[in-house]
Simulated scan of single mutants.
Amino acid sequence: MKKGVLLVNLGSPDSTNPKDVKKYLDEFLMDPRVIDVPKWARILLVRGIILNTRPKKSAEAYQKIWWEEGSPLIVISERLKEKVQQSTNIPVSLAMRYGSMTLKKGLQELVDKGVNQVLVMPLYPQFAMATTETINVKVEELQKEFFPNLEVDTFSAFYNREDYIEVLSKSIAEGLKGKNYEHVLFSYHGVPERHIRKSDITKSHCKIDGQCCVTPSEAHTFCYRHQCLKTTQLVAEKLNLQEGTYSSSFQSRLGFDPWLQPYTDRTIERFGKKGIKNMAIVTPAFVSDCLETLEEIAMEGEEIFHEVGGKEFTTIPCLNDRDDFAQLLANWIEEWQLTDVKTAIA
């Protein structure tokens, strides 16, 4: 078997033109694992309402963070892929779940190099329906339709792996060095509460009641909320953060259904009103800086903090293309190369 690796990130519009943004949002929001309502309702919501109002506003947001080379998420992911390729002797390709860098193109690139066994590595530390699951489901569909001779292995969530926590903690420590922070906020991308319940393989454990995420259960294998909170706990322990000086929150909610709480924007506002003058924020649900980190957090979040009396707002970069993160991915690939077990690496 000739092996290869497909790194997968979220994706990005081709440009900041509202037409390109609209095309991207249509693909993203019409995914039934992102907005998990009946198709007729999704069409009504997305194409009848959201796409008639949001593309222009989103395009303006992308314009604030767009690099000369293009989308930050794409550029950073490409840099990361090149570093990983330099550290492994098997082909590595890059694809996006949404946008023009399609999963099909990424798989085809590997097949054209003679690959017949591929490890799909979603670049998401925590499992979620709208991230890891939608990638794996789409890859399976493509494999059956276009690549019947290709064997596909999937890489599982790495939120609690000791080597990952080591790299993440080191990056955060570097970002905090010399900063007189009073509180560190771990902000994760939000998801509707119903996603948590739908992902519960026990169909009874997840109640989002403050206890279920800390009560041992096989449901945690696919529980985004548990995995986010666990990441925070492990990093806090690694950095010896004192109780009360750190917390977790969730950002980027959409619509009127209940989403995971507390909300990041309201949490930032609350800390400022409480008299916190110096705070730092890290976004461990993302490995690459993108619209949600560069605009929603680093710009909008800082503005909220200053409006309520906050002074210093430190945004910790994502892992991006750090050498130690690229080497970590290469190490995991090496582990996979040395095993013939066709299951997710635990």
Rank of each mutant, 00 (worst) to 15 (best):
D20A: 07
V84K: 02
Q227C: 10
L150G: 03
V8A: 06
P13I: 01
R47F: 08
K207S: 12
A236P: 02
V21G: 02
Q327W: 06
T88C: 09
L185R: 03
Q261F: 10
E182A: 07
K144W: 07
V120P: 01
L168H: 05
D323Q: 14
P317N: 11
V118T: 07
I304R: 10
L7G: 01
R54K: 10
L94R: 03
E307K: 15
A285L: 09
A285M: 09
Q337F: 10
E69N: 11
N149Q: 12
F271I: 13
K57N: 13
H306D: 10
T132A: 04
I76H: 07
T131N: 00
S171V: 08
E162K: 02
F146N: 03
P32M: 02
V184T: 10
A128K: 02
K113G: 10
F127H: 08
K39N: 13
T215R: 12
S58H: 08
D153G: 07
G11V: 00
E312D: 15
K177Y: 06
V341Y: 07
L110H: 02
K311D: 14
Q63G: 13
N17T: 01
S217Y: 08
K39W: 14
C290F: 00
E151Y: 06
N149E: 12
L80N: 08
L103I: 02
Y24M: 10
G106L: 07
L107R: 01
V137M: 12
F158V: 03
W332S: 02
E133V: 12
R225Y: 15
V120D: 04
A236Y: 03
D324A: 06
C318I: 04
L142Q: 04
Q126G: 04
K207G: 07
G48C: 11
F127T: 01
L168R: 01
T102V: 09
S156T: 09
H189Q: 06
L6W: 01
L7R: 01
Q337G: 11
K207P: 05
L229R: 11
I135V: 15
Q85P: 13
V92D: 00
T231K: 04
I201C: 05
P258Y: 06
N160M: 08
K23S: 15
A128N: 03
E60R: 13
S249L: 06
A326R: 00
M129A: 14
Y164H: 00
I316F: 02
G99F: 01
F155I: 00
T264I: 13
L142W: 03
V21E: 02
K230A: 14
R161C: 00
V341S: 09
V115D: 02
